[in-house]
Write a protein that binds this DNA or RNA. Sequence first.
DNA 1: ATGTCAGCGGCACGCTGA
Length: 264
Amino acid sequence: MKIATFNINGIKARLPRLKEWLAETRPAVACLQEIKSQDEGFPAGEIEELGYSAIWHGQKAFNGVAILVDSQAGYTITEVQRGLGVDGPKDGEGEQARYLEAEVNGVRIACLYLPNGNPQPGPKFTYKLAWMEALRARMAQIWAEEVPAVVLGDFNVIPEDDDTWSVKAMQDDALMQPESRDAYARFLNDGWTDALRTHNPRGGVWTYWDYQAGAWQRDHGFRIDHILLSPECADRLESVGVDKAHRGREKASDHAPVWVRLKA
DNA sequence: ATGTCAGCGGCACGCTGA
């Protein structure tokens, strides 16, 4: 069972690339972030034409998450929860569309787009840390259910120094502040397995390259898209990968897809 | 030192968020 995460940075702008990626790599489950689309603008029809069914949680202009399953291969999806109940950093704006959880053929899937948190310090960084705390609480509930579970998405956290091309360039960024890293480390301390880290213990694997400053051409990237596995899923981990070549295509997202394959 | 992109409102391009 292949399970993937892909921050697509706008589903309207990225639809040709998304369709290409689905057709070429056929993940059983594809978690998408930054669809940047309201619910009614989601291109469900075009995704169905590729043999995928989907659930989505959108909002206007920003954020937004979706989970796609390969219905052609017999996968079915049932929504479990949307949102973590954390209000956005501005007064009265309510909750942003960043979390969607579902059951897919006996595996719990939690798709997330964690707040970026810049600039820090400030209200956006405070919001990021509050969101991470709420996520940890939800992960503890899932853990207590003792179901096979995969928590994946754009965490907007660079976990270790060797997860970035330059510590110096990123040192003041919200993505690698000690508070962000400590909150991420707590997920691992709770028993979740960072799939990419397990297969690349010395780091040096990127999932994001900025559009600016020729970052892609210079391989100036870092690792912020993560796949966390419950113990049952960690035991079934067969392979992991980053579809790096897709970052180099025309009109690409600034993130590359990341995936795991679990034994049946 | 700088370098980009997507979506919005609304129809030109400045603003926001990343």
